[in-house]
Amino acid sequence: MAKLISIVTPCYNEEGNVEELYRRIAKVMENLPYEYEHICIDNCSTDSTVAKLKVLAAQDKRLKIIINARNFGHITSPYHALLQSHGDACILIASDLQDPPEMIVDFVRKWEEGFKTVLAVKPESEESTVMFFIRKTYYRMISRISEVSLVNNATGAGLFDKVVIEILRKLQDPYPYFRGLLCEIGFPIATVPFKQPRRQRGVTKNNFYTLYDIAMLGITNHSKVPLRLMAMGGFLLAIISMLAALGFLIAKLIFWNSFQLGVAPILIGMFFFGAIQMLFIGLLGEYIGSIHTKIRNMPLVIESERINFDVPE
């Protein structure tokens, strides 16, 4: 019996892309010697995405749909869909077609070579130069401070053997940094480089908050370096403050009548130390927020509907 490959495509307001996405995935899988299921998880779209998916699912029982009760965000929704897969391997790609479905062939080839984890990486991209530079800088930084070696420029798309998926099920992480978890598991990771195309239809769902969210998630989940920098920075600033105070005292004692401290240094010092304190408190808040999210143990998503999951494989 042929092995089963699960293909997961998370979507939100992708009415202009889901039909082409379905066709391109079906075309790729026609040329591979595997059975497949296509799991599309919709994060409570407000356009006609779900309606179009239901039409396709009525024609092809291999297309399975999960509809979330509300928008649960870009982190938990794809992760939940991965855990619902039943394949010998599971492939995750974006539904905006910026992860070309044709990469599935390269993912499967690496899997057949024995890799349990395969990740797509984008050493170059057609997105804005500034955003691409910021992403590369972030991944370089997080790789240096992380407790495990991370894959630079990974998009999150890739193939994961059923062994990896089973480990992820046991972890029960309610708000995972997925790329970091894959590296923490420890299996050798194969990479598939590609040039990411520009989005052709629809509007990107990423904004400053979502990008900041995933950036801080990567830091708080996989590094204690910021916490230790706070402790060392506080100690260093205390020493500098004491030395500055001693210097001012000596200057005042030597030049008692002529030395005037003035208001400007006091204000500058107050604003500087106030800013440092706010930065440290903010970083501590991120770590505390991460802990709070995990101890609540909320489900990844709440589903409102499933389609075609009751169909025998």
Rank of each mutant, 00 (worst) to 15 (best):
I250V: 15
V263G: 05
S125R: 03
H38G: 07
T191R: 10
T129N: 14
W111T: 02
K116T: 07
D173M: 09
V163K: 14
K27L: 12
R306N: 08
M298P: 00
S45M: 06
G274Y: 00
N31H: 12
Y175H: 13
R140C: 10
V121W: 05
C11L: 14
V118A: 00
L32R: 02
A120W: 04
I239Y: 08
E113P: 02
E113L: 10
N308F: 04
K162H: 12
N257P: 05
C11V: 15
I104L: 01
G114W: 02
P312A: 09
I266H: 00
K54F: 06
I93R: 01
T293L: 13
N221P: 00
E147V: 10
F280N: 13
D42P: 00
G156V: 05
I288S: 05
A190F: 09
M242L: 15
L56S: 06
F309H: 14
G114K: 01
I185P: 01
V164W: 07
V148C: 11
G73P: 10
L217F: 02
L32W: 03
Y139S: 14
I165Q: 02
G285L: 00
S128K: 11
S6I: 01
R179C: 12
R109A: 15
Y22A: 10
I167N: 09
A94P: 01
L63R: 03
Y138A: 02
K54Q: 11
I66V: 11
S146A: 12
M29L: 06
I214A: 04
Q200N: 11
V164K: 06
Y212K: 14
N152E: 15
V151E: 09
L83E: 04
